[in-house]
C-alpha cells in the first residue's frame, strides 16, 4: 500500500503546488452562477415547500462543482502525465492497477470535496439551506466524486491529446451536469424531459445530495443511492479493466 500512498500523495502535492487558485477559481465561477441565477429567479415560487430558489440552487451548484472538479482532476492529471510522458515513472514502479485507480480517484474525490466545501461556505452569504440529513449529503458527495473521478480516469486513459480530453468534457460531462437538475427540479420539466432526465445518472447524484439538505427530493433517495452506486460499480469496473489490460498505457 506504500506505493498507493505515494501516488495519492503525489496527486495531492500536485494540487497543493498548484496554489490557492486551484480552489478559488472554481469557487469564484460557481458564485457567479449563484449571483446571476438567484438574482434572476429568486422571485419565482418556492421550489419545495418553504424552500426559496437561491437556497434550492446551492446544493445543486455545490454538487455540480464537486462532479466537475473530480472529473477534471483525474482526467487532466492522468492524460497530461500520459501525453507528456512522465507517467512512465509510475508505470515503471511496482504499483498494482487497482492502487493506481484508487490513488487517482481518491485524489479526485478529495479535491472535489475541498472545492465543493469552499463553494458551500461562500454560498452561505446568499442563503442558508438547512442540513436535514448530513449523512446523505456526505454519502452522495463521496459517491458523486468517486463516480466522476472514475470517469476522469477512463477519459484520461482514452484521450490521446488535450483536444480529445476537452471534447469529452464538452460533449459528455458538461451537458450531463447541466441537464441533471442542478438548476431546477425535474418536476418543472415537461413529462418527456422528465423521463429523459431519469436516464442521466448525474440527476440521481444531485437529487440525492439535495435530499440531504431539504429532506425532500424529486425521487426516493434510496433509488438515487442504488443508481449512483450501481453506476459507480460499473464505471470503476470498466476503468479497472482498462488499467489491468494496460490499454493505451502499456503499449
Amino acid at each position: 500500500m506504500l506505493s498507493f500512498y505515494a501516488l495519492f500523495y503525489k496527486e495531492l502535492l500536485r494540487i497543493w503546488n498548484g496554489g490557492i487558485q486551484a480552489v478559488l477559481a472554481p469557487v469564484l465561477s460557481t458564485l457567479l452562477y449563484l449571483l446571476i441565477f438567484s438574482h434572476m429567479l429568486e422571485q419565482q415560487t418556492e421550489i419545495y415547500p418553504g424552500v426559496r430558489y437561491t437556497a434550492f440552487l446551492i446544493p445543486g451548484l455545490v454538487m455540480m462543482t464537486v462532479l466537475q472538479i473530480a472529473y477534471s482532476n483525474s482526467s487532466t492529471s492522468l492524460s497530461a502525465s500520459k501525453i507528456t510522458g512522465n507517467l512512465v515513472f509510475a508505470l515503471l514502479a511496482p504499483i498494482a492497477y487497482w492502487e493506481f485507480f484508487l490513488a487517482y480517484v481518491l485524489a479526485a474525490v478529495v479535491r472535489g470535496l475541498v472545492v465543493g466545501t469552499g463553494v458551500y461556505l461562500a454560498a452561505l452569504w446568499f442563503a442558508q439551506p438547512p442540513m436535514q440529513f448530513p449523512c446523505w449529503i456526505i454519502l452522495f458527495a463521496l459517491l458523486g466524486g468517486a463516480l466522476l473521478g472514475s470517469l476522469g480516469v477512463v477519459a484520461g486513459i482514452w484521450a490521446e491529446n488535450f483536444d480529445q480530453l476537452g471534447g469529452y468534457a464538452n460533449f459528455i460531462v458538461t451537458p450531463l451536469t447541466f441537464l441533471s437538475g442542478a438548476f431546477y427540479s425535474i418536476h418543472s420539466l415537461p413529462s418527456f424531459w422528465q423521463q429523459v432526465s431519469r436516464l442521466n445518472p448525474f440527476f440521481y447524484i444531485i437529487d440525492g445530495f439535495r435530499y440531504g439538505f431539504f429532506g425532500v427530493s424529486d425521487i426516493s433517495p434510496w433509488l438515487s443511492l442504488a443508481v449512483v452506486s450501481g453506476s459507480l460499480l460499473m464505471l470503476a469496473g470498466f476503468a479497472l479493466a482498462l488499467l489491468k489490460s494496460g490499454y493505451k498505457l502499456r503499449l
Partner: peptide
C-alpha cells in the same frame, strides 16, 4: 509540478 527533491521522494515512495 515538482522540484528535484520532491521528484526523488515520490519515486522512492512508488517503490515502497
Amino acid at each position: 509540478n515538482f522540484n528535484v527533491r520532491e521528484t526523488l521522494r515520490l519515486q522512492s515512495g512508488y517503490f515502497g
